[in-house]
Amino acid sequence: MKVKNKTVLVTGALMLASTPAWAQSGSEAASAAASELKGFAAPALQAPVAFGARWGTFGVGGYGQTCDCNDQDADGSLGVAFGLGDPDKYAALEVAVASSSLFGDTGSGDSFGESGSVGLKLHTNLPGFASFAVGVNGTGRWGSDAFKNANKSSVYAVATKMLPVGQFATILNIGIGDELYNEPNKSGANVFGSAAFYFTQQISVLAEYTGRFTNAAVSVAPFRSFPLTVTLGATNLGERYGGNVEFAGSVGVGFAFN
């Protein structure tokens, strides 16, 4: 990916997010916020989704998995995210910052907090409980040259929709992206996607293809009125690239201050 192209995309996203919001009738919007429902199970493990944070909301999340990648045989990342704008009226920009290489320093040479990156996602909500977003993960990298060179920024476009299935529901997610969402050492873009089946809003089972790996997980929001989500699963089910199936987990908490 040429740096110039990415710069243009990110600049465009920032310009769109800063544009004044247009009014939208609330007749189609659900009154989810009016409820006391704050615990939602996750729709994906690693794959980006098309909805995101808006102004007044922020989240904290951690991810870890086993891997044959360092002396500790495990690694993880820790991030914070916040939103600007309103995806119901026009669009919102989700800004996420992550610290990488939390467990192991063998591979990149970076210790805790010494490497990381920024993610930007411009997203909007569409009728029919759908969303659309474009974003970039891994821009603004800091850390060792080894980390920065091995982790390229990845641009993606993604669409997500909720579909009722009887008394249950699904969230389907499909997108295209380059670099991390494509085969290693292959130029261009590849398809990624996820499907989550919700038994209740607080329990989901999900499967995803990241463009490289097939993953599966179970996600639980243990508290109905507290915004905590725990997701546990397995990555690389196809044992691709000579790797093994690995255990993975994430924990996230989200808050609203307006």
């Binding site: 690694d75 994430s250 989200g254």
Partner: peptide
């Protein structure tokens, strides 16, 4: 380089947002 390419280094970008943490979107 280490865990690069496995998605681990960028996973928290998604997890802190709404992929692994939908309550961030409420």
């Amino acid at each position: 380089s280490g865990s690069a390419g496995l998605g681990i280094d960028y996973a928290a970008l998604a997890v802190s947002g709404c992929s692994g943490n939908p309550s961030t979107c409420i």
